[in-house]
Design a protein around this nucleic acid. Structure first.
Lengths: 231, 231
DNA sequence: GAGGGTTCTTATGGAATCCGGAACGAACGG
DNA sequence: CCGTTCGTTCCGGATTCCATAAGAACCCTC
């Protein structure tokens, strides 16, 4: 059904070596890993990707990890694990009741880190059916709550009809929708094929890398359109 | 008033078997469970017991779950979780503009149901601490206890409707609220878009640096409004 | 309840945005 | 090679948004 069923973990640390270390451990275990080096980037990535879990450095230049955690918490219940250099900070983290779900000492073994992530995911996994309001399809991402749409990491702005159209197609990738079906659904059955075509064209203009040879929204001759699966 | 230390959950469903199922799951996990079979009874029980959490069937004879939710919301901020038979209703609920905090599919596993309840309780009773009743959005700050609102360090005075509106948006940053959702929640479902628009306009007049190009309360064309998150 | 002030709703006009049909050339299939 | 289908551009009409203002409902005080 959906393309990437792999769980995404967002790792945030200003030290690239730590980031890469975590990436190695987690990717080896089959996780999709995204990274950020500072607070703003972290929030941007988070909103783009809606990862299943966040690993967050406490000490960072600019806003610290607590600020970021608070902002993430304002928008989501995603589990957040704090990264700390020493074990001393543990008490602070525990006490702060910031909604952090666990902490990891940076010197922990790969096995322990992965185990912590898995544990926290397991705990939250059951409640995955509130349907993470994120449709994720290759380079295409729709945030159903905020109605934000991203192609790669570039936000695109769609009109209501365009958005609804794209959303339907994203929810049923590779399924062909006939003109009739689309007209039924979005135009109360009245209207002609040309109308659909115009809207598809406008969508392609916005989301295709090369609108002249569409890779995402493809036409099925004489029938209708569908959303291609992406690499 | 001597009350049990255990958390009370009120389960409302017209199907007794569902009610008993939920009761089993929750009592096994140490919750106190109260039940009701229809809307009137639900409200009565609610006022009697003031439970920490409410599980509410959407489809019920007489008033539906949304009505009950609205009435509960009128007197309390208790977390409300909707029960739905199928996953299909998700779209309607997802906006959560109705004051529901989450939803549960009735076929969910015991573990999932309990986890969902705990998650929502944890969110609303942040570890029994005084829980700074303060929503903080960059320059925008809402003191939920005193209903004071500040922009930067300048206090602004809002009318009740303005305050409630702003509060809802602040509690769900970046989430788009449709006119319908807002009318449902603040105008008992009657009224038209113009009403919402005027109130938004007045809010902008008070909290935006430049009301002519809003940075905080933004419009989503043909859909509704949302609160932009800070950088 | 009567007056005065505040808050809420509805109405209006103008600006911005979106929609959908028409037209025409290109692409496709037989 | 011909008929159909597809893609694109363009433009009038419709919808939506916002500001303003005036009428209605509400709340307080006396």
């Amino acid at each position: 059904m959906r393309v990437s069923e792999r769980q995404t973990v967002l790792v945030v640390d200003d030290d690239p070596s730590i980031v890469e270390l975590m990436r190695d451990f987690l990717e080896n275990d089959g996780f999709e890993v995204a990274t950020a080096g500072e607070a703003e980037e972290a929030l941007a990535r988070f909103r783009q990707l809606r990862p299943q879990c966040v690993l967050l450095d406490i000490m960072m230049p600019g806003q610290n990890g607590f600020d970021v955690c608070r902002k993430i918490r304002a928008e989501s219940d995603v589990p957040v694990l704090f990264l700390s250099a020493r074990g001393d900070d543990v008490d602070k983290i525990r006490g702060l009741g910031l909604g952090g779900d666990d902490y990891i000492v940076k010197t922990a073994s790969p096995g322990e880190i992965v185990a912590r992530v898995k544990a926290v995911l397991r705990r939250y996994q059951p409640s995955r059916s509130p349907a993470p309001p994120m449709l994720n399809y290759g380079r295409l991402r729709l945030d159903l709550a905020s109605r934000d749409v991203f192609v790669g990491d570039r936000p695109v702005s769609l009109t209501p009809k365009e958005y609804e159209l794209l959303r339907l197609l994203c929810e049923h990738p590779r399924q062909v929708f006939t003109y009739e079906q689309l007209l039924d659904r979005f135009w109360e059955g009245v209207g002609d094929k040309h109308t659909v075509r115009v809207h598809i064209a406008r969508l392609r203009e916005k989301i295709e890398a090369d609108p002249d040879s569409p890779q995402i929204l493809t036409n099925v001759w004489g029938v209708g359109y569908r959303l291609e699966a992406e690499l």
